[in-house]
Nucleic acid binder design. Structure first.
Length: 993
RNA sequence: GCAGGAAUGGCGAAACGGUAAACGCACUCGACUUAGAAUCGAGAAACUGGGAGUUCGAAUCUCUCUUCCUGUACCA
């Protein structure tokens, strides 16, 4: 196939009636672009439908065949919906801020905007050649100032908002100020920082402007705070939790350390409960919803306050200390036999006794040295230290020893736990290890081997007023009693942390923020966008500031409302601007709404547009965005809903995760000691076969002269483009592959059979598609060799959309020859052969069963089975020698969402002036499928033995009689009397006996 | 550990509780050909990861075990 592609093309071109896919596809792509066939209007008499793809990051490598999978599926659905009479919005754009372009800028000095524009050009060309029905007039790019203007705008709205727990929504900060001015903050029920002090109206009114701003910052939905962040030294930036995988950066796999920095954060935690509840209302995959539930991590329980007992030796440190803990099991409060603090807990240094000081400090030092990754990897080792201090049990008033241990995480809950060893395995293991008593508070449960954590079968004992109660009742009672004492209350805890929103990078949205006396000020929305400044270098400054610190024109003049030279900063009218930029998810958190009204420069989108399109009806994309993009977007959508900007608080009604297309790698094997010798896949398989191993080793020895012991084989990837459908290598191309590999003079050791045929076979294995594995297949080449319609059909034909499946270019000939057969159904050597002949009964049956199946398939997103259905229809109609326009015309409409170019061309040949995309979907007519007879399978004890043609209008009894009278039945029964005869009319007959 | 998903020919896969493997790749043979990697035709194979149950009948429903994939985790 690879040897003489040109030759094949020449033959094709010599006959004008053949299927010239390259010409046809270019022609219709041009037609669609020129006629703006897929432009969607923001008003229509038709019902609306919004089909969205997760927009791509335009990387330098371009698309490989795995990328368009979801786009093809959504395009089929969008085209189908148009045939079904919907006004369809199907836009596309680019998530064009991001690290790779910036890393490239650091290396080469080329401005990321240039790199990005070039990459987008490649993407656009690649997308266009696949024939997508995108409305490109609505394209957005997140790095375009006219777009990020609105990203900045939302940031300002978040800054100007606080979360009122009473109304359970975001409200304008001015409302909060009114409350402060009227009654102070004691009655405010807001989602805010933990360290807020109570103040009265008088106190508020006396505060300086700075102090007021400082307080308000603690309430705002985006706020500046010193937080412990994930700092990645190699990338020179902080990372969000979802950007870290297994303790290293998702991009590049660099180590990440904890570091305190002043950063913008998003108060997404305010929306934790609504984000959780909202999942019930949307049709997303279970696994994705489950990921979000885990990430939000709701747990219901109680917070309990333990007083630290005063210690005589600590008289210098006055004041009573309290330890707050969160527990999901307040019912086990009498089982507490110690407390454990995270080593980083702020109280540790304050309560540790002089005798224990050395031990505790040594332990803290030891844990600090262990990286986050070590701590995660090693969960078995139990370690800790006793502080010497004791807390008082709230009910029994007994002293409880306070320990520190790294199994308690500083970042979750309060960083302290009440340890109940009989009810929690971690506490149990810790207690066993340090010989701490394990009191049993469960009725009739043995805890000599392990803790007992089964809530359902819990009866509490040895617990004063909780004795005899079940889990549920004991929890309620314990919380009630704790509240009475003022030492606890019911509490719901979420794992979801506020999201760090600052990045120390260049290629991202600048913040619309300047600083007056260190306090952040928003630039008025009417002066947006604040455009990225030019910088000399894209690296951090020498003083460690982010890249924007290199900009010389990066100060805000409050008089002219423009960005001016840094020299002019006087901190009176001209102030420094924020040096951080926004993270990757900023631009992608609202793009789906912006598509509805992308050129609007007065508003983020008009109310007319959003009320017309409302929300995304179908969203297709990868599952890797489960806890990043898809959670943040839901958060912003809920925020915009609170502001009254959008009609729904969920942006996407239905979401499908397309599976990944994997590569089919090809291997040969190199002899370790003599790298000029390669072994074919066949020989390698013999080598691994215990029966043939000796023989094979001798065989290899004959060629190489190596001793048997020294023969070792290394797996070598062969670029898949040098391997054909029968797994044979194109040897000359392989030799010339890459000069540095030095394959020119290698010798292949092959089996006798291979030698006879003069071939070398590879082994195949499925791996992720990647450059380093030489299994990447480029859609450009596929489009040249087989056409976009073949590519589209084949991607769908590979298997169910959601499933992971390997790509194997060899298989594409199947769908390609289907398209050629389809072409021949309409054309012969003399041109169009479609006639006005009346369709036969068989023709109609084939057409209508195809309509039924294809419609069902598309509605169920089962695109792979439709492709088979088309093949069957084409084969049947060819066999029936069908030329009837009444059949062949509607058939084209069925196929057009999948293979739009060939459908347009044939549609045009049939005499239509307008695009097939405007045609109505054919109506299914059941009457054509009604049969008079059925070929019944006749089973004996459930096993089918033969079939019998019987009329469908026979009664059960008639069928039974007819079957029992049959000779073959008698043969099967061999004289036995049937015990029972099951007749399901129209389906099956089963004889038991 | 927890959660979600999966297991069917050599490969990708079909299959409302009712004829398992449709459709395609690969394979074998034949036809047309100077030639076939084009086209047309024919063919072979494999009984659903293991075990139990429900049923007249199970790939499909239930239980159980095994393996694999994905996500997540000292989350109190």
């Amino acid at each position: 196939m690879f040897i003489n592609r040109k030759f094949a093309l020449l033959i094709t071109e010599s006959n004008t009636m053949k299927y010239h896919f390259n010409e046809i596809e270019a022609k219709w792509q041009k037609y669609w672009a020129e006629n703006q066939t897929f432009k969607a209007e923001n008003y229509s008499d038709k019902p609306k439908y919004y089909v969205l793809d997760m927009f791509p990051y335009p990387s330098g490598a371009g698309l490989h065949v795995g990328h368009p999978l979801g786009y093809i599926a959504s395009d089929i659905y969008a085209r189908y919906k148009r045939h079904k009479g919907f006004n369809v919005l199907h836009p596309q754009g680019y998530d064009s801020f991001g690290l790779p372009a910036e890393q490239y800028a650091i290396q080469t000095g080329q401005h990321p905007a240039i790199t990005t524009a070039e990459n987008i050009k490649t993407y656009r060309r690649q997308l266009d050649q696949i024939g997508f029905s995108f409305d490109w007039s609505r394209e957005v790019r997140t790095s375009d100032p006219s777009y990020y203007k609105w990203t900045q705008w939302i940031f300002i709205q978040l800054f100007n908002s606080w979360y009122n727990n009473n109304s359970d929504k975001a409200e304008n900060i001015s409302e909060l100020i009114k409350i402060f001015e009227a009654e102070g903050n004691t009655n405010v029920n807001a989602e805010c920082d933990d360290d807020i002090e109570a103040f009265t109206v008088e106190e508020w009114n006396c505060y300086s402007s700075e102090k007021k701003q400082e307080i308000l910052l603690k309430y705002r939905l985006t706020y500046l705070a010193e937080t412990e962040v994930n700092w990645c030294p190699a990338l020179g930036t902080v990372l969000a939790n979802d950007e870290i995988v297994n303790g290293v950066s998702e991009r590049g796999g660099h180590p990440v350390i904890r570091k305190k920095m002043t950063q913008w954060s998003m108060r997404i935690s305010a929306y934790a409960e609504r984000l959780l509840q909202g999942l019930e209302t949307i049709d997303w995959t279970d696994s994705l919803k489950e990921s979000q539930r885990n990430w939000i991590g709701k747990s219901v329980g109680a917070s309990v306050t333990f007083n630290v007992l005063p210690n005589v030796t600590l008289s210098a440190v006055e004041g009573s200390h309290k330890i707050d803990v969160f527990t999901t099991r307040p019912d086990t409060i009498f089982g507490v036999s110690f407390m454990t603090l995270a080593p980083e807990h702020e109280l540790v240094s304050k309560i540790t006794t002089p005798e224990q000081k050395a031990e505790v400090e040594a332990y803290i030092e030891a844990t600090a040295k262990r990286s986050e990754r070590d701590r995660m990897a090693d969960v078995k080792t139990i370690s800790g230290a006793f502080t010497g201090a004791y807390a008082e049990h709230p009910f029994s008033k007994k002293p409880i020893p306070i320990w520190i241990g790294d199994y308690v995480l500083a970042g979750y809950g309060t960083g302290a736990v009440m340890s109940v060893p009989c009810g929690d395995q971690r506490d149990y293991d810790f207690a066993k290890h340090f010989n701490i008593p394990i009191p049993n508070i469960f009725e009739g449960v043995d805890i000599s081997e392990e803790a007992f954590a089964d809530k359902d079968n819990t009866i509490i004992a040895n617990s004063d007023f909780l004795n005899g109660l079940t889990y549920k009742k004991a929890v309620k009672t314990a919380i009630y009693e704790l509240e009475k004492l003022g030492q606890g209350k019911g509490k719901t805890n979420y794992r979801l942390r506020d999201a760090v929103f600052s990045r120390q990078r260049y290629w991202g949205e600048p913040f619309p923020v300047y600083y007056v006396n260190g306090m952040p000020q928003m630039i008025d929305a009417k002066h947006l966008p604040i455009e990225l400044p030019e910088v000399e270098k894209y690296l951090p400054t020498e003083t460690g500031e982010p890249p924007l610190g290199n900009a010389t024109v990066w100060a805000w003049c409050t008089e002219t409302n423009t960005v001016v030279d840094n020299d002019k900063i006087d901190n009176k009218t001209i102030f420094p601007l924020e040096l951080n930029t926004m993270p990757g998810w900023a631009g992608s958190s609202q793009y789906f709404n912006r598509y509805m009204d992308p050129q609007n420069d007065k508003e983020i989108f008009s109310q007319d547009a959003i009320n017309y399109w409302q929300q995304v009806d179908l969203y297709i994309g990868g599952s890797e965005h489960a806890t990043g993009h898809l959670l943040y977007s839901r958060f912003w959508q809920k925020f915009m809903f609170d502001l009254g900007l959008v009609p729904y608080d969920e942006f996407a009604k239905k979401l499908i995760n397309q599976g990944m297309i994997l590569g089919t790698s090809a291997f040969v094997y190199r002899i370790n000691e003599k790298p000029e010798f390669f072994v074919s896949g066949e020989v390698f398989n013999n080598y691994n076969d215990s029966e043939k191993r000796i023989e094979t080793l001798n065989f290899i020895q004959e060629f190489t002269g190596l001793s048997l012991e020294s023969i070792q084989l290394d797996e070598i990837h062969v670029d898949v483009k040098y391997v054909n459908a029968s797994n044979e290598i194109d040897v000359p191309s392989f030799r010339n592959w890459m000069k540095e590999f030095k394959y020119e003079h290698i010798k292949f050791i092959t089996t006798k059979e291979e030698q006879e045929k003069d071939i070398v076979k590879v082994n195949r294995d499925v791996e992720k598609m990647s450059k380093s594995k030489y299994n990447v297949v480029n859609p450009d080449q596929i489009c040249i060799d087989y056409g976009a319609d073949s590519l589209r059909l084949y991607e769908m034909f590979l298997g169910p959309l959601e499933q992971y499946k390997p790509w194997n270019t060899a298989g594409i000939t199947g769908v390609h020859s289907f398209l050629k057969k389809l072409w021949k159904l309409y054309n012969d050597d003399n041109g169009l052969k479609v006639t006005d002949a009346a369709p036969t009964k068989d023709n109609l049956k084939t057409l209508h069963k195809t309509i039924k199946k294809v419609e069902e398939d598309i509605e169920n997103f089962s695109f792979n089975t439709s492709v088979s259905t088309f093949m069957i229809a084409c084969n049947e109609l060819t066999a029936q020698k069908c030329t009837s326009k009444q059949i062949l015309e509607p058939l084209l409409v069925l196929i057009s969402p999948y293979a739009p170019h060939i459908a347009e061309e044939l549609w045009n040949q049939l005499g239509h002036d307008s695009s097939i995309s405007l045609a109505d979907f054919p109506k299914f007519d059941e009457s054509h499928l009604v049969e008079s007879t059925k070929n019944y399978p006749i089973s004996f004890n459930g096993k089918m033995r033969f079939t019998m043609e019987l009329a469908l209008d026979l009664s059960k009894d008639d069928i039974e009689k007819a079957v029992l009278a049959n000779d073959k039945t008698k043969e099967q029964l061999q004289g036995r009397e049937p015990k029972k005869v099951i007749v399901v009319p129209g389906k099956i007959v089963n004889i038991v006996g």
